[in-house]
């Protein structure tokens, strides 16, 4: 049974300019212990979707089941009890700025009516786990963004939840801090077996920690599956675009005019898995066909802890061997995709 099951979910908002369909017939199955990414451009409905999972937003249609129990069937009071089982962290951390770090982590425990001493003991342990044992007495304003997010994570874990929802949790952080927060989430997932749902617009986040991903566009799920499958064989334009934009920590360089002149033939993107990376595939390709290829981009990416080589190649404009060369690459065990989106 899935930990979280979202079926045929729709959400419409009434606004002054008429109705806005934020989600259209969304269905997802999230397994227990998974790290599930929900990715999409801004306005795709990701935040609405994640808020339906803990019923902060009540869906217009459809159901949300947690451990097989439907949230829509709960009373307000039962729902509050249920939310203790679902931790949540946010883009802007949403800490109490007037309370110390320790008191922030105690907050959910006080809500549940725990005694002060008991709450503080638990909070101190959690701050240890997130690596902020020495910041108990500090106030959020004295912390960096990454530290604030760690406090938020400790706070979300205070009620021993089985699910953790992350709403753009790394979007306000720099790449290094993002990585350290993702590592922490990964650790929490492994050590406590907490099911994590990550909402993001950054492919790099999904690539680094998620096992499964759903791609959202205009309120609809356009593609979902294993992250490694989607990375090697993106089926939709949205997926391809997200992968192309995933520059990780490499710099986005303005393409020069000279480069654009060279770029005229067909462009493909190839993905090496571990075993195919041993051979000098490109060198062999050139030797076999006696024809140059242009390497537009090459990179090694961490996809869920596995290194994958990614390369964008361009054939010569009037090449007769394009199809044969693609076939050759596939024979070598590489994933080959046409990638016109890289021509700019």
């Amino acid at each position: 049974m899935s930990k979280i099951s979202v079926s045929h979910l729709s959400k419409t908002f009434q606004s002054a300019d008429g109705t806005v369909e934020a989600l259209k017939d969304v269905s997802l199955e999230i397994a227990s212990g998974d790290i599930f990414g929900i990715i999409g451009m801004s306005g795709a409905g990701k935040s609405t979707l994640v808020r339906c999972i803990n019923y902060l937003e009540v869906p217009t249609e459809g159901k949300v089941l947690i451990d097989g129990k439907e949230l829509g069937g709960f009373s307000e009071k039962e729902l509050r009890k249920q939310r203790e089982n679902i931790g949540m962290i946010f883009q802007h951390f949403n800490l109490l700025m007037q309370k110390s770090v320790l008191e922030n982590v105690c907050f959910p425990l006080y809500i549940q009516g725990k005694k002060k001493a008991e709450a503080r003991k638990k909070a101190a342990e959690l701050l240890e786990i997130v690596g902020l044992a020495d910041k108990q007495k500090a106030y959020p304003a004295q912390l960096s963004g990454g530290q604030m997010q760690r406090v938020a994570i400790a706070r979300a874990l205070a009620s021993d939840p089985e699910i953790l929802l992350c709403d753009e949790a790394t979007s306000a952080l720099d790449p290094q801090t993002t990585s350290s927060i993702l590592e922490l989430l990964d650790k929490i997932n492994k050590e406590f077996g907490i099911t994590i749902v990550i909402i993001t617009h950054q492919m790099s986040v999904v690539r680094e920690v998620c096992r499964h991903v759903a791609i959202l566009k205009n309120g609809e799920v356009v593609e979902q599956g294993l992250v490694s499958d989607i990375f090697t064989h993106p089926k939709t334009d949205v997926a391809r675009e997200l992968i192309r934009k995933d520059t990780g920590d490499e710099a986005e360089v303005e393409k020069t005019a000279a480069m654009q002149e060279i770029q005229s033939g067909e462009i493909i993107r190839i993905v090496f898995s571990e075993n195919s990376a041993f051979e000098p595939v490109i060198a062999n390709l050139i030797l076999t066909f006696r024809e140059p290829v242009n390497i537009l981009r090459a990179n090694t990416r961490n996809v869920g802890g596995v290194a994958k080589g990614e390369m964008v190649l361009q054939f010569m404009e009037y090449s007769q061997n394009t199809e044969a060369m693609k076939h050759y690459l596939e024979e070598c065990g590489l994933a080959v995709e046409e990638a016109p989106e890289y021509a700019h």
Binding site: R83, E84, G87, F90, N94, M97, P108, I111
Partner: peptide, 24 residues
């Protein structure tokens, strides 16, 4: 956002008033 965070933790409206609104 802080109010939403409190709601996500299962806080009741009364708890949000006394522990979030009046504090923040």
């Amino acid at each position: 956002g802080v109010i939403e965070a409190a709601r996500s933790m299962g806080a009741s409206n009364m708890q949000i008033i006394t522990r979030v609104l009046l504090v923040e």
